Simulated assay, not measured.
Amino acid sequence: MGSQPANALGTLQDAGTKFKPSEGTTNPSLLYSAAQNPAYYHLLIRAIKYAKSLSISLPSEERLQLAAEFLAVQFGTEIYKLTGRVSTEVDVIHSFNKEATIAAALRMISLYAAQGVPKDKVRIKISATWEGIKAASFLTHEHGISVLITIVFGMVQAITAAEAGVACIAPYVGRISDWHKAQGMTGGDKGVEIVRDMQNYLRKYGYGTKVMGASFRNTEQVKQLAGTDLLTISPVVLELLEKEKGDFGPCLTSESAQAADLPKVSYINDENAFRWAFNMDACAVEKSAEAMRKFAEDSKKLEGLLAEML
């Protein structure tokens, strides 16, 4: 069960001592929050030194992006020391550029190697766009890199990522649920239902891609998705789970997968089919764009902090 740092590494350290998570993860919002904590000022200093070591011919914007990338790896290295595995996200600004995504991923793997973190202990997080999934396929098959496709809100993203052979996908359970509630949906939890379908589909058709459920709002969502390959759960929800009485078993099994009425489809070789299916899923379109905008905003804030120090 993966555990996600809430606002700073100290939260993960506390959770790691108590819950022994199998890995930790970062995203731009978490990094921006952690970077404001004085306890990690030394990591920012390292990023500034790195930025100053770069070629003076680089545009200032690119220099800041590379410094933020370096800082993400510094935080990731600290998480790796606590959990033994870490996921780090490619800047969402590259979400629609396959080549830039590949280049950023390879840079981060090299930066981790320089910190003594082996490639097989790093997952590179990439947005669930057509270009992102194609970049993930290349990184997986040509470089043996473990890729986690993130910002997943719809079946088309999950299926295409699985066809690409990536290691994991991260569907946002709570955010999917939030969107459907905002549309007036009552009865059942749509976030749980959609992620349940993703897990059952991937198992039914024998894909090796793991589902890593994320963005849990409450313990009930966790319990209803028990049996999912991996769960990224905040320390807050883990604490609430610990306080609940009674045991609960897996809801998602090989039997539930085979029983699921989910016809097989394919998108990996048909960009038009992927984009059309994605376009027809209003939740996926709206929430994916919202998540990328938010991450991009926090990335810029982080770069702003670095710019002030430079």
Score class of each variant (00 low, 15 high):
residue 260 A to E: 15
residue 135 A to W: 12
residue 120 D to L: 09
residue 287 K to W: 06
residue 108 M to V: 06
residue 20 K to T: 06
residue 187 G to Y: 03
residue 23 E to P: 00
residue 95 S to E: 14
residue 42 H to G: 02
residue 220 E to N: 14
residue 51 A to M: 15
residue 280 M to N: 02
residue 305 L to K: 09
residue 307 A to H: 08
residue 271 E to G: 02
residue 36 Q to W: 07
residue 167 A to P: 04
residue 227 G to W: 07
residue 131 E to W: 03
residue 98 K to C: 02
residue 253 T to W: 11
residue 307 A to C: 08
residue 271 E to I: 03
residue 137 S to A: 15
residue 195 V to S: 12
residue 148 L to V: 03
residue 3 S to G: 03
residue 229 D to M: 05
residue 186 T to Q: 10
residue 93 I to M: 10
residue 94 H to D: 09
residue 30 L to C: 04
residue 278 F to R: 00
residue 84 G to S: 01
residue 26 T to I: 05
residue 133 I to E: 02
residue 34 A to Y: 00
residue 53 S to T: 12
residue 23 E to A: 05
residue 225 L to E: 10
residue 201 Y to F: 13
residue 206 G to E: 07
residue 164 A to L: 05
residue 208 G to T: 04
residue 246 G to L: 12
residue 133 I to W: 02
residue 191 G to V: 02
residue 181 K to G: 10
residue 240 L to S: 10
residue 5 P to E: 11
residue 215 S to V: 03
residue 107 R to H: 09
residue 84 G to E: 11
residue 158 A to R: 02
residue 267 Y to E: 02
residue 35 A to W: 00
residue 126 I to G: 01
residue 245 K to W: 01
residue 245 K to R: 07
residue 71 L to F: 12
residue 208 G to E: 01
residue 246 G to H: 15
residue 209 T to K: 00
residue 73 V to K: 04
residue 101 T to S: 12
residue 34 A to R: 00
residue 161 A to V: 07
residue 242 E to V: 05
residue 228 T to N: 12
residue 97 N to E: 13
residue 168 C to I: 14
residue 293 R to T: 11
residue 34 A to T: 03
residue 131 E to A: 13
residue 145 I to G: 01
residue 206 G to Q: 07
residue 182 A to T: 07
residue 184 G to S: 04
residue 285 V to A: 09
residue 158 A to G: 09
residue 218 N to I: 09
residue 33 S to Y: 01
residue 72 A to Q: 12
residue 190 K to L: 04
residue 146 S to W: 07
residue 280 M to T: 00
residue 302 L to C: 10
residue 251 C to W: 13
residue 234 S to W: 00
residue 104 A to M: 15
residue 80 Y to S: 00
residue 152 V to M: 05
residue 246 G to S: 14
residue 41 Y to C: 11
residue 238 L to V: 03
residue 259 A to S: 11
residue 241 L to D: 03
residue 255 E to H: 10
residue 14 D to Y: 12
residue 52 K to I: 12
residue 76 G to R: 03
residue 261 D to K: 15
residue 279 N to R: 11
residue 49 K to M: 13
residue 222 V to F: 06
residue 107 R to E: 05
residue 232 T to G: 03
residue 304 G to F: 11
residue 296 A to D: 08
residue 15 A to H: 03
residue 17 T to I: 09
residue 199 Q to C: 07
residue 268 I to C: 08
residue 76 G to L: 08
residue 248 F to M: 04
residue 119 K to Y: 04
residue 298 D to W: 13
residue 190 K to S: 07
residue 165 G to Y: 08
residue 216 F to H: 02
residue 4 Q to E: 14
residue 53 S to L: 05
residue 221 Q to K: 02
residue 106 L to G: 01
residue 173 V to H: 13
residue 97 N to C: 12
residue 84 G to F: 01
residue 142 E to S: 13
residue 191 G to P: 04
residue 106 L to A: 08
residue 215 S to E: 00
residue 3 S to M: 09
residue 46 R to W: 08
residue 42 H to S: 06
residue 306 L to M: 08
residue 293 R to S: 13
